[in-house]
Design a binder for these strands. Structure first.
Lengths: 393, 393
DNA sequence: GAAGCGGGTTGATACGTATAGATCGTGGAT
DNA sequence: ATCCACGATCTATACGTATCAACCCGCTTC
């Protein structure tokens, strides 16, 4: 409250209650105009300790609130006298002014916040290793670009997803990075329709709208893997897909066919089967494949890789040795290597994907009016000991 | 735009351009008042696709904007006719309305967001195991209480801490959880002075202001450990403190003296030394302690436990065996156990602390005007094989 | 029949900021 | 002398919401 003293005296002078005496320290040279004064008086009436506003800065510096705003955000061609700028900045310093983000946002300004919405919970320890690299990339890049990171944690638990709790979930951020396997397509479509800026991690095609995403390139390394298998003598190759039937699975299947074509395999020798988890993989099914002439299985991995691990376990138990009798490869992140087993697979560059997603989003937010951007990033091959040359019988 | 059709017709009716014809579907029974109409016309003039506002809802439902707001946030005694409520909610449903968080915030409402400011970077992998449990607790509790979590990542890299970038850092959230060993006391004091609601994780005393924190109880388990050592025959006990001289170190020293008093040890037999890292722990220093009669060392741990590990290494190298010649215990989190060594220590309940911090903060935000709250949570003892009965020579 | 009451609704305003448009000197060109 | 340009600043308004005071209307009460 003592900070107001000079301004108060200045007010008294205006009202004729006091003689104009120049405070030695920091009294506005120019008496404040009636306009800002009225605002300021109204402001002073309010109770309780409040954060200083531009009006108070203006009052203290003897300028109008507009000028304060100009000093703060000006720069591009807007002329402000050096002396004025100095006085305003001094007042800002004195009062410890900080712009009210809510008011800025209301004027349509950016808040420098990007949201991170994960369709599953993020921090749980069991999936930590899966999501953490994405988080790492997102956080790093956001920090580098000067954005804070808003984690939408509350929307997940309360069922209803993005549009939970009166569907205002994501609006707190300037834009949003969406992440998660079990995403609601409706939510995505709605967001796109509303024009909310967001980037999805992972490929999704939504009809009618084109959305921004950054996704790993599953096609190329899958094709390469299939060609490699063909070169090792494999003819009958099986793709074990996740039952969700999402785009990543489609990409892998496309890679499979593309590789087969390049290696002159007959399309009829490609088998595609589906699984929704470890329970689907029974002994009969696996031995059936082998009896059917399948010598190589390429697996679309899930977060916990349960399907692939079950396959290996069942096969071994049934006497089908990997890789001697059956080559197995993961079309993505494989289970961690053990003493005897390094899975042939390819690594998804999660950190880089997180980074790229933020970059795309910031482009969307700051850049000129652009169409949605899609980015596909390459994976790196991991060659282990789970595939081998086929032995002709 | 087709959604506006009924409202548009309604406007035409008002202006006399059209005959009042009741749309079969959803036309406001009551013609909108001139007031909301003016607002609505002004709104329609604006270009570009925009999110629907309360004014549009009001227009569509044939009520005033105030009523819409009442329907949305009312409940406590404010009477709204059931029919009105229905119409408004229908309009909200139709247009997909979502309250603008910025406008709410500007009116001084809570945004249901709590900030998390870490004085060091959070996600880096090397300190992941240290910070992750706190994060986990904070995130869980925030989600449970319906708050989103805002990570202030941008403020850290840009030097300047809390008050970086025009010192508006934390204002985006309703309140903030602060975390980190190398905190700026000035920042804490400033925040408290400004009346910004926050809770610090870890004990800090700031003169002149009383701030909210939740911290582990270092005193009790330290005292217990010292009593235990005394019971094992130790007389001369050394406390190895971190040089930062922060409150956690003070607490441990207090625990040391308290335990010594309870065990009837002579105060002069307590030695307190400081270290800022592994480099401080030389062979001469350690052997000096032993020669001086010290039989037990209790170590204040750092994030990476470098000091304590260095102590063990140097001692072993100098032929001082642990625990036979020298008992060593950690006053907090110890290095992970190995095949031969389990460190005697106590575990800080990080997840619970994170949870408690959020609870305190939410209390601060939603509860009545209360004084700052401090919370001290107990640790759990870990008894290993790094201390033993002293052998009298 | 006037006064009081209370449920239901509306007009108006404030929140703090950014910015378009107006104003006002001042100096230079016509 | 007039006009224009321009630098510097000001007035005024919009952003979308919450809320207070006022109001209207039908009913009861004296």
């Amino acid at each position: 409250m003592p900070l107001f003293a000079p301004a108060l005296r200045c007010l008294d002078v205006m009202l004729g209650k006091s003689t104009p005496c120049v405070h030695p320290l920091r009294v506005p040279r120019v008496p404040p105009s009636r306009y800002v004064l009225v605002k300021w008086i109204a402001m002073r009436k309010r109770a309780g300790p409040r954060r200083p506003t531009q009006v108070e800065i203006a009052q203290r510096a003897g300028v109008s609130q507009a000028t304060v705003s100009l000093v703060l955000n000006g720069g591009d061609g807007v002329p402000v006298a050096e002396e004025t700028r100095r006085r305003v900045q001094q007042a800002i310093e004195d009062l410890g002014y900080a712009a009210n983000p809510a008011a800025r946002a209301l004027r349509g300004m950016t808040v420098k916040t990007i949201g991170l919405y994960t369709f599953e919970s993020v921090f749980p320890v069991d999936q930590r290793d899966f999501y953490h690299p994405f988080l790492l990339g997102v956080e790093e890049e956001a920090a580098r670009l000067g954005y804070d990171l808003l984690l939408f944690t509350s929307a997940n638990t309360a069922q209803g997803g993005v549009y939970a709790r009166g569907r205002n979930a994501l609006l707190k951020a300037d834009g949003c990075v969406l992440l998660g396997r079990h995403i609601s397509r409706d939510d995505l479509a709605n967001l796109a329709k509303e024009g909310f800026p967001f980037v999805f991690i992972g490929r999704r095609d939504i009809s009618e709208t084109e959305l921004s995403y950054v996704a790993p390139d599953y096609v190329t390394p899958t094709a390469a893997l299939v060609e490699e298998l063909a070169a090792l003598g494999h003819r009958r190759i099986l793709l074990l897909r996740q039952t969700d039937g999402a785009e990543p699975g489609d990409d892998r299947e496309r890679g499979l066919r593309q590789g087969a074509r390049a290696a002159n395999l007959h399309p009829d020798d490609l088998v595609v089967e589906f699984s929704s988890g470890a329970a689907d993989i029974g002994t009969d099914r696996v031995t059936g494949w082998v009896r059917d002439g399948v010598t190589a299985v390429v697996v679309e991995p899930s977060e916990d890789n349960a399907t692939g691990l079950a396959l290996a376990e069942v096969a071994e138990a049934a006497g089908v040795r990997i890789p001697d009798h059956l080559s197995v490869a993961f079309l993505g992140s494989a289970p961690p290597p053990t003493a005897t087993r390094i899975w042939t697979s390819f690594e998804i560059p999660r950190v880089e994907i997180g980074r790229a997603a933020v970059q795309l989003l910031v482009n969307l937010l700051e850049g000129a009016e652009q169409p949605p951007l899609q980015l596909v990033v390459p994976c790196t091959d991991v060659r282990g000991n789970s595939i081998s040359r086929v032995v002709r019988r």
